Computed example of a mutant assay.
Amino acid sequence: MNRKGPLAAAVPTHRRVVTLPGRGRTTIWEAPGPPGAPVLLLLHGATLNAELNWSGVINTLGRHYRVVAPDQRGHGDGPRCSVFRLEDCADDAAALATELGIDRFVAVGYSMGGFVAQLLWHRHRERVAGLVLCSTARNMCGSPWERSVAMLLPSAVATAAWFPALYPLGADLIAAGLLDHDLGPAERSWALAQMRRTTLRNALSTVQAVSAFSSHDWIGSVDVPAAAVLTRHDRVVPVRRQWKLARAIPGSTVIEVDGDHGVFVSSPGRFAAAVLAGCHAVCAGPVDELDTEPTTTAS
């Protein structure tokens, strides 16, 4: 992976293009893991791509698991779309697993990817062996201010679609605030370049879909092992909402990590340790080789 950051070379990581019949093509990053290891399907957040969200994690996870990280619909090199729907992302992920010959997997979702992971269980329960939900919630539109912003999104999406001058603009115009303020210049430049691989139009359509999502009515029925990785200082997904999600899922394990919403770039080792602990909790694996010791509790 061509990133400016502390990505070790201990685990072989491959990038390739996969065609999903009837759905388009996507680029995936993958690590084979040990023979017979459980499969982790990593689902990135809104305005990100697999390389940006997961490049600091794949090597750590790949020592224990087979790892597959696709670019999602409308993002990076994911399948193209005119209207972004989270349900399509969930169906893409299930189709990718089929194409790769994977029967069951643990869905690991970050932020918006956590919504997609929840939908994967809801729509394709026979495929999902567990959930690791990072920096995410049951919904993202609860307060009056958030509802007001959501009401303006359709107009913003239409504007981006109707004015050709806006087509070349990238997601970094609205997503730069996801990055931690103290991020180094090289890391920030690399992260913004990755964000620019998603168009502003697709980013706005994604935010509109995210604002409309809610799993309140069914998330309490989750019947597979689950873990929630909580970012304690998150400015995008308030930690109280992350806790509400964790407490709504019966028997879920909570992993707390010091960091903001951009912890995957600013502190990749710390983030990787927390995600690994969540995966071990879901897969009943050993908690070893952690870069830092996360706080683990039962919800």
Rank of each mutant, 00 (worst) to 15 (best):
T60R: 15
R15V: 07
C141L: 00
S82G: 14
S189L: 08
R125G: 15
L183M: 10
D182C: 00
Q72V: 11
R80N: 07
A90M: 06
G62A: 10
H181Q: 10
T199I: 03
H122K: 14
T26R: 01
I102T: 13
A186G: 02
A69W: 07
P225Q: 02
C89L: 11
Q118V: 09
P238V: 00
G76C: 05
P250C: 04
A191N: 05
L43Q: 07
C279S: 13
S215C: 15
S111H: 09
T159N: 06
S148V: 01
V17P: 00
L43N: 03
G142L: 07
V237R: 04
W29Q: 13
R247G: 12
H75Q: 12
S148K: 08
D291N: 13
Y167M: 06
G74P: 05
A160E: 09
V257L: 14
A281F: 09
V17F: 07
Y65S: 04
T253R: 10
R197F: 02
L42I: 05
A175L: 04
W29T: 11
N139M: 04
D182I: 00
R201M: 03
D92R: 04
P70R: 07
L48P: 00
H64N: 12
G74M: 06
L120G: 15
V222D: 04
V275W: 01
P154G: 08
L20Q: 06
F213M: 06
A203N: 09
S299R: 04
R63L: 10
P268N: 10
D223C: 04
A186H: 11
G285L: 03
L183S: 05
E87N: 10
E30T: 10
R15F: 00
L120Y: 03
V132H: 07
F163Y: 14
M151A: 15
L40F: 08
H122V: 00
M140I: 01
P79V: 01
D77W: 02
E87T: 15
A95M: 10
G262M: 06
R196I: 03
C279G: 12
W145S: 13
D223W: 03
P35Y: 03
V128W: 09
G56S: 12
Q194M: 13
R104K: 14
H261N: 11
V108Q: 06
K244F: 02
R15D: 00
P154M: 05
G142T: 13
